[in-house]
Design a protein around this nucleic acid. Structure first.
Length: 574
RNA sequence: CGGGGCGUAGCGCAGCCUGGUAGCGCGCCUGCUUUGGGAGCAGGAUGUCGGAGGUUCAAAUCCUCUCGCCCCGACCA
């Protein structure tokens, strides 16, 4: 490609509305432009990278035995009503009506459509297992899109769906995808971790997220310094404390204390001169509209994802003020467990606590020396809290490390959630109808591109790994008005292309500095500079973007040498 | 959805408080010079000041509404 003919609008100044490196650089390098909040146009340079990323994904998906399909973006409401997600998915689902007033949505994901397709066509165990995937546009009406293509509303996703006859088969399909994902992200030169994750909106029994480690990531991860336990913070298990025998003789007499306008844990702690860890918070939630009381230590936090899966509910919300009043008899800030009109669940950390401080279920009152079993009855103890840095690894007890990550991929074992709701069945060997066991597997294409940039940039711009670089080499004649330089550059351009190398020829009539800076910004891994002095000796200079190292080579040797360097670069992340 | 902020030339911004000729840098166009890390000189083009309404002799500036965009939060009593 010739630079002078390319639609490649680089910008010198940092865009004012970009926060993180990848967003700034994608704008500056002329890869993307914003059309509306969370909606981006992809320009030629950006699209070249997208296509490379997609090619790697396709190769590895095909290698893993998946087959590519292409499903509609527009989906009828009926399918979503069948799976129950028309109600569940909430405002993120972009809905609309056609001219006949029929309801549709733009697919944020494709479980419904694929399940519908497969249930209509697959009838017997002989046709299973199958794994179908596509790369396609999704729309999710995010509350707050941000960070460029990292969290946007319209984006391309690779989504795959596996169908098996039983759970064991589904485990094999899951493992295949897990392995394929590991290869995909390795080939892109990413440093990543697969972590145990919450299944959220998609549902299912378990899942792993593929996290690119980056400080700008939106997810918090923990991993063990010793064993291989790794999890998203919202999923991370807390080691169960040992249950000790509680001796009721240690219970002190209940004591009601007047605490005017003392509501928060901090205020209670100060007012009563007790540590936050000695106070018990009572949180009133509504689980599918049914109020529940959740007890947790004052210095800890409820993990809503854990609570939701523990209760097995779909919608979990903190109760509104009037529900709190109805359930506890007091306004927010004074809720306690005694006499509360709801089931009481408590975090494991409260199992051995005695004589705690709690809200009094009466405005401006708290209670001391409250005890489970005497003053109220916990229905069940469970791991309901957010893990802390000081917690030990739930598997081996070693120290944990925290990191930030970008979720580029997510694999789910769905079980029969969709096949049951939508009656996707097959006949087994005995002629008996069985539900298919499903898995689903996503990769955010644009987000992966952004994540690659987050991990591969310096103060001059992007530093592409060879495997996803929009061009492998850029040829820069320092002055196109010198005929010998211009000709040598043309010759080199032709010779490199003959070798199958992807070359950008910067034959613009610009000063060398401008071209160097653009080459650095757009991140081409190798640069060949043609200058008058070297050329007089029949040589040109090769620069490696990542290391900044240069070497001079005889012109006739360049195509072979560069070809070798490109191949080595590609082999580095096989 | 709640809070905060910003919309002025293609981009980055000043001007607004205290109403009175719309500016700066970069980019863009022309010419000459220059040519290995974002050139110099000379000349030139470019604005519904986000939109609508209002106040005023007069509005980028003050007021009201509205649209767009960015940031923070959106559950912890």
């Amino acid at each position: 490609m010739r630079y002078s003919e390319m639609f490649l609008p680089t910008v010198r100044e940092t865009p004012s509305d970009a926060e993180i490196a990848s967003h700034k650089l994608m704008i500056r390098a002329g890869m993307i432009r914003k059309l509306a909040t969370g909606v981006y146009s992809v320009l030629p340079l950006g699209y070249r990278v997208v296509k490379k990323v997609e090619a790697i994904i396709r190769e590895e998906m095909d290698r893993a035995g998946a087959q590519e399909v292409y499903l509609p973006a527009v989906q009828p409401a009926e399918l979503w009503q069948e799976s129950g997600r028309w109600k569940m998915y909430g405002k993120e689902l972009l809905r609309f009506k056609d001219r006949h007033n029929r309801e549709y949505c733009i697919g944020p994901t494709h479980e419904e459509v694929i399940t519908d397709l497969v249930r209509n066509e697959i009838k017997t165990y002989r046709q299973l297992p199958r794994n179908l995937y596509q790369i396609q546009t999704k729309f999710r009406d995010e509350i707050r899109p941000r960070f460029g293509v990292m969290r946007c509303r319209e984006f391309d996703m690779k989504d795959a769906y596996s169908f098996d006859i039983d759970s064991e088969g589904a485990d094999i399909s899951y493992q295949k995808m897990y392995d394929a994902y590991s290869r995909i992200f390795s080939r892109m030169g990413l440093k990543f971790r697969a972590v145990e994750a919450d299944t959220g909106n998609i549902g299912g029994s378990f899942s792993h997220e593929f996290m690119v480690i980056a400080d700008t990531g939106e997810d918090a991860l923990i991993f063990c310094t010793k064993c291989n336990y790794a999890a998203n913070l919202e999923k991370a298990e807390v080691a169960k404390p040992e249950k000790k025998a509680v001796n009721p003789s240690a219970f002190l007499a209940l004591e009601t204390v007047h605490t005017p306008n003392v509501r928060t844990i901090e205020e209670v702690s100060k007012f009563l001169k007790v540590k936050p860890g000695e106070i018990v918070k009572t949180l009133i939630f509504q689980a599918d509209s049914k109020p529940v009381a959740v007890l947790i230590r004052g210095d800890e936090e409820v993990n809503e994802a854990k609570l939701r899966s523990f209760l097995g509910c779909d919608i979990l919300e903190l109760a509104t003020d009037d529900v709190v009043l109805a359930v506890t008899g007091s306004p927010k800030g004074f809720a306690g467990a005694i006499g509360v009109k709801a089931d009481i669940y408590a975090d494991d950390s409260l199992m051995n606590m005695v004589n705690v401080v709690m809200g009094g279920n009466k405005e401006d009152y708290h209670v001391r020396n409250v005890n489970n079993g005497r003053d109220f009855q916990v229905k069940a103890f469970a791991d309901l809290r957010v893990i802390l840095k000081t917690d030990p690894c739930p598997r081996c007890g070693s120290r944990l490390r925290f990191a930030k990550g970008i979720e580029v991929g997510h694999v789910f074992k769905l079980g029969d959630k969709y096949s049951k709701a939508m009656r996707a069945t097959y006949l087994d060997k005995n002629g008996k109808e069985q539900y298919m066991v499903m898995g689903c597997y996503g990769i955010g294409v644009g987000r992966t591109v952004a994540a690659i940039i987050e991990q591969n940039n310096d103060d001059k711009g992007i530093v592409w790994p060879m495997s996803v670089s929009p061009f492998q080499v850029v040829v820069v004649p320092v002055n196109v008005n010198e005929k010998t330089l211009a000709e040598a550059a043309e010759n080199l351009y032709g010779a490199l292309r003959k070798k199958g190398i992807e070359v950008l020829l910067d034959e613009r009539d610009e000063r060398a500095g401008v071209k160097f800076n653009d080459a650095d910004l757009i991140g081409i891994p190798l640069r060949i500079t043609l200058g008058p002095k070297k050329l007089a000796e029949g040589e040109a200079e090769v620069l490696v973007r990542k290391t900044g190292k240069t070497k001079s080579l005889k012109l006739e040797k360049i195509p072979a040498t560069i070809s070798g360097m490109v191949k080595r670069g590609l082999r580095k992340h096989p």
